[in-house]
């Protein structure tokens, strides 16, 4: 199981998380290459279906990286995304799939280090869970 390299899809807010990614790049902090970033204008645009589709396509984990609750440019984007992630966790549970395969993180534009840490945290957590689809 140690050589298992989970495929992770990350929905990242272009206002904070993506800026954090740029900061991380400037700090020469590299993201794991098995995390696929999807940049979105606001995490409030991420629908339940968007969060389910990666699993349908075989991803092992999904996360949303957005703003702090009190600093969303569109006021409530990350709050909406958080509720949707919670809902998808319930769906996964009903499907007998570990709800920890999906998560949401609050970042801010300057937190380059944290952006990379979150990616590794998710990779390690999903690695523990094992592949979503058993070979």
């Amino acid at each position: 199981m140690n050589d298992f390299k989970p495929q992770i899809v990350a929905f990242c807010c272009s206002n904070c998380a993506s800026s954090a990614a740029n900061v991380a790049e400037g700090m020469k902090k590299a993201l794991p290459d098995n995390v696929k970033i999807i940049q979105i204008p606001c995490t409030g645009r991420v629908e339940i279906l968007h969060l389910l589709k990666p699993f349908e396509e075989g991803a092992d984990g999904v996360y949303v990286a957005g703003c702090q609750e009190d600093s969303c440019q569109y006021v409530s984007g990350i709050a909406k995304a958080t509720k949707r992630v919670t809902h998808v966790k319930k769906i996964l549970e009903e499907l007998s799939i570990e709800p920890d395969r999906i998560d949401v993180f609050n970042l801010s534009a300057g937190k380059g280090q944290e952006f990379v840490e979150v990616a590794y945290e998710m990779v390690n957590k999903v690695k523990e869970l094992g592949p979503f689809l058993q070979a």
């Binding site: 279906l49 389910l52 589709k53 699993f55 769906i91 499907l95 007998s96 979503f132 689809l133």
Partner: peptide, 9 residues
């Protein structure tokens, strides 16, 4: 999508 995921699993 949920049904597809479940069956795929």
């Amino acid at each position: 999508s949920s049904i597809r995921i479940s069956r795929k699993k």
